[in-house]
Amino acid sequence: MGELNDDQLVSAFKALGHPTRLEILGWLKDGDSFPPQDRPAEEAGVCLKHIQARAEVSQSTASQFMATLQRADLVICTRIGQFSHYRRNEQTIAELSKAIGSGV
């Protein structure tokens, strides 16, 4: 993917500007911090219902949070049946970290 452009940086920082979204991204770093699922979290991600329960928000709020993180390319969504599973997009997160380290 390469370096993040200014629009991507702004989108990522806006997505991380809400404490719960920032917390969710941290939780997703360790899939074991959620209840066991049929598939390992590192393979398919964490089901939205588990994210919702941990964040103690409504389903629609959890969906909005994840949509914002997905638009910023910070998470990847995988549909399994009727359920959405989310995992971190480590490539984008590494590029964001590199941009921050270089003084943006």
Rank of each mutant, 00 (worst) to 15 (best):
G45M: 01
Q82M: 09
Q70S: 14
I76N: 03
P36Y: 09
D73P: 00
A67M: 14
T20S: 11
I80W: 02
L74Y: 03
L16R: 06
I24L: 07
T92M: 05
G101D: 14
K98G: 07
D6I: 14
A67S: 15
V75A: 03
F83K: 11
K14I: 14
R54W: 02
A12P: 02
L16Y: 04
V75I: 10
P40F: 04
K29R: 15
T20N: 11
L25E: 03
A12F: 00
D30P: 01
S97M: 14
Q59P: 09
L28N: 02
Q59S: 15
G26C: 06
G101P: 03
Y86M: 00
A94S: 14
D38P: 08
F13G: 06
E95A: 15
E3Q: 14
N89K: 02
L22F: 12
R87G: 04
R54Q: 11
E23Y: 10
E90R: 08
N5D: 15
G81Q: 08
Q82D: 10
L69I: 09
P19F: 08
G26P: 01
L9W: 01
R39T: 12
V57D: 02
E43G: 00
T78V: 10
L74V: 03
T68M: 11
I100M: 15
A99M: 10
K29A: 13
A15Q: 05
G81L: 08
E42G: 03
N5H: 09
M66C: 11
V57H: 11
L96T: 02
G101W: 13
M66F: 03
R54F: 01
Q91I: 12
A55R: 03
A55W: 06
P40G: 05
V46W: 02
Q70K: 15
G26Y: 03
T68Q: 13
Q91W: 12
E95L: 14
P19I: 02
P35S: 06
D6G: 06
S84E: 05
T68W: 01
A44V: 11
A55D: 02
T78D: 04
F83M: 07
K49R: 13
D73L: 04
R79G: 01
S97L: 15
F83E: 12
M66S: 06
H85Y: 09
G31E: 02
E43C: 00
A53T: 07
Q70E: 15
T78M: 04
K14M: 12
A15N: 00
Q70A: 14
D38F: 10
L48W: 02
Q37T: 09
E3M: 12
P19Y: 09
G101Q: 14
A67K: 15
F34G: 04
R21S: 05
R39M: 12
M66E: 03
A53K: 11
T68K: 15
S102V: 07
E3F: 09
E43F: 06
I24G: 00
E90N: 07
S102W: 11
Q37L: 06
F65P: 01
A99E: 08
S11W: 01
P36M: 02
Q70G: 10
K49M: 06
P36S: 07
Q52Y: 01
M66A: 02
R39S: 13
L28H: 07
G31W: 01
I80R: 13
C77M: 09
P36V: 05
P19K: 10
I76K: 08
V104F: 11
R39L: 14
A99W: 01
G31K: 04
D32M: 09
R87E: 01
